[in-house]
Simulated scan of single mutants.
Amino acid sequence: MASPFSPAEEAYLDAHKHESRVADIHWVYSVPIAAAALSTALRFWAKRLGRNGIALDDYLILFATFCLIGQCSSGLGYGPPHGMGRHVIVVSAYDQMMVRKGDYIFSHFYDLALVAVKLGILAFYYRVFVHTIFRSVVLATAAFVVAWGIGITVTLFLACRPLNAYWDATIKGQCLTMVTFVYFTNVSNLITDICIFLMPIPMIWHLQLQTKKKLLLSFIFCIGLATCVISSIRLTVVLGRGSADFTWYYVPLGAYSVFEPLGGILCTNLPIIWHMLRKRRAMNRSLGSSSKTHDSGTPTIGSGSRRSRIAHMLGITTIDGTQNESAVRIQNDSTVKGQNSEGVPNTADFHRLDSLESQKPDPNIWTTVERFDSAGPGAADGADELTPGMKKTVWNVRK
C-alpha cells in the first residue's frame, strides 16, 4: 500500500514521532466542561434567587451545555487513549479507527450544541423584545437555524455509504469530501452568528434611554461576537481535517470546535447572572435602608424595632379595633392640664378635650396605663401631676 506521505514528510514525521499534544487535549476539553456546567448552574441559581421563572431560552442553554459536555467527553474518551495528539505513524490501525469514530460522535454533539445556543439566544430575544416586526425576524431566523441544523445532521449521517466507512478504512464505500462539508458548515455558521448577535442593536437604539446606557447594552449583546472570531480562526485549521496525519491535526480543530459553543454559552449566561445579582443586591440595599429608617424614627408598633415587637407580644397596640387614630398620646403638662402659659384654662382646650373624650376607646374593652418617661420629684412622690419639662405616655391596653 502506497504511503500518503512524501519522502520529506516521512522524514519529518520520523524525526518528530516522540512529540505529543496529549496534555493539551486534557485541559482543552476539561476546562470547557467545568466552565459551561458552572455558568449554567449559576444561571439557574440566579433565576431562582431573583424569583424569575425558567423560560424556554434557559432550557435551550441547558441542553446546549449537555451537548458541550458530551462533545468534550467524546474527545477525552476517544482521543488520548487511542493516540490522538500523537503523529499518525506511531498510532495503530485500530486506534486510528477509534479516533475517527470519536470524531464522528464529536461532530454530532458540536452541531447540536451550536443549534441549541443559537436558538437559546433567539428565544431570549423573543422574550425580551415585544416589537412585532422584530419578533417576526427572530422567528424567521430561528426557522433557518433549525433547517440548518437538520441539514448538517442529515448530511453527516449520509457522509459515507455504508456509514462504517467513515471511520473504518478497510471498508470500501463512497464518502463525501469532508473538508468541503466542514467549510460550508463554518461559513454558514459564521454568517448566522454575526446576524444573530447584531440583531438587537437597532432595537436598543430606539429605546428611550441615555446614550451611555445604549452603548452599555449594545456592548453586552455584542460580546457574543467573540465566538465569531473563534469561528474565523477555526476556518484556518479546517484543512488539517484532510491531512493524512489527522491524529495530530485534530487537536487544534477540536479545541476551536469546543470553545465556539462554549463562548456562546458564556455570553448568554454571564449577563443574566450579573443582572440577577445586581437586582438582588439593590433589593437588599433598599430593604436595609428601609429598616434603618424605621429604627431611627419614633418607635411605633409594627415598625420593626425591638420595643414594638415586645409591645406587640404583650398585646399592646396603637390601633383600635375600628382603625381609629393611634391611642398612644405623648402629653406635656400644658395639654394635660388644659391651661395656657399663664395657668388659665383655655376654652379651645376644653372643646378639644371634649372631642377627645368622645373618641376614647370603649372602657369595657380597653384600660389606660400611664408611664413617666423620666424620673422627677412628682414621679418619685407618686403624684399625678407632672413637673415642667416632663412627659407622660398613656397606653391603651386591651383588658
Rank of each mutant, 00 (worst) to 15 (best):
M203H: 06
I54K: 02
F259E: 02
F124H: 04
G102L: 06
G70Q: 09
L314I: 09
C175D: 03
I204R: 01
T40W: 04
T185F: 09
M178A: 00
L122D: 02
K279I: 07
I319D: 11
Q323E: 13
N269D: 13
G263I: 04
V31L: 12
D384F: 10
H18M: 11
T387G: 14
S30I: 08
L112N: 09
T347G: 01
G389Q: 14
S218D: 01
K212W: 06
G302A: 06
A379C: 12
F5T: 14
P81L: 14
T268H: 08
K214L: 07
C267H: 01
S374A: 15
L112I: 13
K212L: 07
S39N: 11
D14N: 15
L217D: 05
P162G: 07
I133R: 14
A140C: 14
C67R: 02
S232M: 13
A11H: 15
S289Y: 00
S231Q: 05
P7F: 08
L190V: 01
N186Q: 08
Y249P: 00
L60K: 01
I191W: 06
L13G: 08
S257P: 07
Y250Q: 05
G376R: 11
S291A: 10
S308I: 00
G382F: 11
H16E: 06
S305W: 01
S374K: 15
L42E: 12
I121V: 13
L386P: 03
F109P: 03
I61H: 01
I171S: 07
L76M: 15
S188V: 03
A123W: 02
L314M: 12
Y166L: 15
T236E: 15
I121A: 08
K212N: 07
W395I: 15
L158W: 05
M199Q: 02
I301D: 08
Y166R: 11
A140G: 14
S6M: 10
I133F: 10
W366H: 06
H82F: 08
G151F: 12
L163R: 04
G240R: 04
T387M: 15
T322G: 15
G79P: 06
I220D: 02
I201L: 09
A64I: 05
R352S: 01
I196M: 03
R241D: 08
L314Q: 13
I201A: 06
W45Q: 02
Y12A: 15
N164H: 12
I233K: 13
T141Q: 09
T368S: 01
T170A: 13
T300P: 07
T65G: 02
V182W: 11
K212Q: 07
T132V: 12
P7T: 09
A255V: 04
N324C: 11
P162L: 03
L139K: 14
A255F: 03
D14V: 13
F184H: 13
M199T: 02
N364E: 14
G224M: 02
I265P: 03
G240W: 02
T141D: 08
R371W: 04
L235T: 12
I310P: 01
Q174N: 10
L119Y: 05
Y126G: 05
I301K: 06
P345K: 00
T185N: 10
M84D: 00
S39K: 04
I61A: 01
F44R: 05
K101N: 07
D381S: 12
Q359T: 13
D193E: 08
L270K: 04
K17S: 11
M313R: 14
V90N: 09
F5Q: 12
